[in-house]
Simulated assay, not measured.
Amino acid sequence: MSEWRVYLSGEIHTDWREQIVSATEAAGLPVSFSAPVTNHEASDDCGAAILGSEDKKFWYDHKGAKVNAIRTRTLIEKADIVVVRFGDKYKQWNAAFDAGYASALGKSLIILHDPSLTHPLKEVDAAALAVAETPDQIVKILNYVINAEL
Rank of each mutant, 00 (worst) to 15 (best):
Met1Leu: 06
Val84Glu: 04
Leu112Trp: 03
Lys63Ile: 04
Ala26Val: 12
Pro115Ser: 09
Ala69Arg: 09
Asp80Cys: 03
Ile141Gln: 05
Leu29Ser: 13
Ser9Glu: 08
Lys89Ala: 15
Thr74Ser: 10
Ala95Thr: 00
Thr134Ser: 03
Ala23Tyr: 02
Gly100Trp: 00
Glu133Ala: 00
Asp61Thr: 07
Val83Ala: 09
Trp16Lys: 05
Leu117Trp: 11
Ala69Asp: 05
Asn147His: 11
Ser34Thr: 09
Lys89Ser: 15
Thr134Gly: 01
Glu123Asn: 15
Ala27Lys: 12
Arg85Leu: 10
Ala23Ser: 14
Leu51Gln: 09
Trp4His: 09
Gly47Lys: 04
Leu105Lys: 08
Asp125Gly: 08
Asn68Asp: 07
Leu129Ser: 15
Leu29Met: 12
Ile110Asn: 00
Lys91Leu: 15
Arg17Glu: 12
Asp15Ile: 01
Gly47Leu: 03
Ala132Gly: 04
Gly100Leu: 01
Arg71Ser: 00
Lys78Glu: 11
Pro120Asp: 07
Leu51Met: 13
Asp61Leu: 02
Trp93Thr: 15
Ser116His: 04
Glu41Gln: 11
Ser32Gln: 15
Ser108Glu: 14
Phe33Gly: 09
Ala69Leu: 07
Asp98Pro: 13
Tyr101Ala: 00
Leu29Asn: 13
Asp114Ala: 14
Ala65Val: 03
Ser22Leu: 14
Ser32Ala: 14
